[in-house]
Design a protein around this nucleic acid. Structure first.
Lengths: 349, 349
DNA sequence: TATCTCATAGAAAGCGCTTGCTGTGACGCT
DNA sequence: AGCGTCACAGCAAGCGCTTTCTATGAGATA
């Protein structure tokens, strides 16, 4: 029914071994033979059996990319960059690799299951993007899984995720804490003293680090934080909308709202507008990430730019062994403060 | 070195066959035996070898999702919905499947290569999302590939993509033409007679259909189109920005700009603003897709909502054989006109 | 008690490919 | 002429799992 290597061999009048070598091109084959084989492959419309090949060679050309939310451009941009370097079809990397992105939906269990599935497939490399969940048992489980993957020869790279010590994983980490601090200091520098903060989900590293940066800035400037000023939510627009209304309810005198990311900031802007407040005249707003749409917001969003594409590309190259890992296996990638229209001095009150 | 089925079998004092059956759960195994096996699996930290399993069983649990641009939420949303139904980890579908999304970057070659790679892996199903390229030889190549996949037992579903006749593929198609027409008719109804159109890349079906709808509306209302009113570009924000400036240069008297999608529309808005024009007072703007950020634009975007998540979910279910394909293998999914702040009557001139 | 029927478990034959090792001529060297 | 070298090509042994077919013992039935 289906064409196999043996069929091709028969047709080309060579041994299966030769066909295999022609296809893999890592062993000398006479030009004339090669041509004959290739012709047979073509005529028979032969397609290599991936599983069989992986089994025999004990390697696979699968590369996994784990993301928390594929519908979020934050991950889409990184995934796209990683993939372009992995060399899937079209990439310039040597053999063709199947770069696959797996959507964990932010769920620890799914993350683990995907890792197992990739381990099953003997993936060549795995890149985990975005913040991790801080739940201890889960973190341990993931760490152990990563170690096993690494031990089995799978290259593991973390992109935009804190280092997982002792797992052999390379980490390219975003300096969320520093970025958060810089952002809030900018606002403080403008004169704000009452700042609301819309944080992401409680248990994520990204959430915590950005919040810590924010608080460090407040503290450094002697601003005592009111606990009513922080609200936790999801990393999406709607959450930002609701959280902002909540913040306004708690303390209508806030002059600035710092959001966990740009999507949340957009929701915050909408909520402020719907509440009859002008941005930045009445309330300043700041986001994080600098996703493409941020510059198109009205007013355009003050935010911290994270070099998502660059980081992803680098992670991809490292995963493919085409770039030296950073010394110590850890690199911190800094964000860049982008001051735009959504932040200004506080209203006189 | 690595633990194999045989190791587990030895440890549990059963035959490899029994272990396999316990793991696959499709053959009666005594409870006590099962338990013993499971314990051995656990103690040995055994992970099934995917390739070996796929080879022996002649099936695989890989499901491919092809997208044009993973960084674009349009695809991200669909992919996410598809994946959730595929049942990757966390989905409710039975066995665990590895749903993988492949980023073609809109390139026909990559699309083809990914299909081949998926064919190599003997994928259980493949879902192709978004518009197709209209290049004839390529279309034929893809069609032939799809047919082969289908023949080999891979379920093929097109989501948001025109039907590929005679390939055995199920198609859930968006009614881009109808949506485009409705959108433009809305604008015409408001009194606009000079409408610019920012189209997507020339050779894509989505581009052509939306444009056809637009033109049908113009024609239906006796508006003769000036060829200067149409500009082609990419499906992104920057392209919209540039195209709008170009349109304005060609004919400053335009009172409305219809964009190929929401991202483009956002760029158009920015260009208009930068040109000192108010929206919608001076120029109305309309998008397409109704991505999440569209409602947050200022003014919020008039657009055509496409039920991306619903369509994706349905495609996923069909791919898994959990839902009946539509009669004839083809379903057309209509968009819904969302009238919002970015469209209004034309300025008196 | 003898026989039949189930429910389970094992033996073994592959699945389609890769690769270490073994030919085997042709060529060039002494 | 004799022999080492090389460039190719083939043999055959798996890779780790699934699954058909064949035991085997325990009840059930006659």
């Amino acid at each position: 029914m289906t064409v196999t290597l043996a069929d091709v061999a028969a047709r080309a009048q060579v041994s299966p071994a030769t066909v295999s070598r022609v296809l893999n091109g890592n062993y000398p084959v006479a030009a004339s033979t090669r041509e004959r084989v290739l012709r047979a492959v073509d005529e028979l419309d032969y397609v290599l059996n991936g599983p069989a090949s992986s089994l025999a060679a004990a390697t696979s050309d699968l590369v996994g990319i784990l993301v928390n939310d594929i519908a979020d451009p934050f991950f889409g941009i990184m995934a796209s960059a990683i993939q372009s370097e992995i060399g899937g079809p079209g990439g310039r990397a040597g053999g063709e690799r199947l770069a696959v992105v797996c959507n964990t939906g932010g769920s620890p269990e799914r993350e683990l299951t995907y890792l197992t599935l990739l381990q099953r497939q003997r993936a060549a490399a795995v890149v985990l993007t975005g913040g991790a969940v801080e739940d201890e048992p889960h973190a341990a489980a993931v760490a152990s899984k990563l170690r096993k993957l690494a031990d089995a020869g799978t290259r593991v790279v973390l992109c935009g995720r804190p280092p997982a010590s002792d797992t052999g994983a390379i980490a390219l980490t975003f300096d969320n804490r520093g970025g958060g601090r810089e952002l809030t200091e900018h606002l403080i520098g403008l004169g704000h003293r009452r700042l609301g903060y819309i944080a992401g989900p409680e248990e994520r590293t990204t959430t915590r680090h950005r919040l810590e940066g924010h608080r460090a800035a407040l503290e450094a400037h002697g601003i005592e934080e009111d606990e009513r000023w922080t609200v936790h939510g999801r990393y999406d627009r709607q959450s930002g909308y609701e959280a902002t209304l909540e913040l306004l309810r708690r303390d209508p005198s806030l002059t600035a709202v710092v959001a966990a990311n740009d999507s949340v900031a957009l929701g915050a802007c909408a909520a402020l507008r719907d509440s009859g407040l002008r941005i930045p005249d009445d309330v300043s707003v700041a986001g994080f990430d600098d996703l493409p749409f941020s510059i198109d917001a009205v007013p355009s969003l003050t935010t911290v730019r994270l070099p998502l594409a660059e980081a992803g590309a680098r992670a991809g190259r490292i995963a493919m062994g085409r770039e030296e890992p950073p010394p110590g296996g850890i690199a911190t990638i800094r964000g860049e403060l982008m001051v735009r229209g959504s932040s200004g001095g506080p209203r006189a009150s």
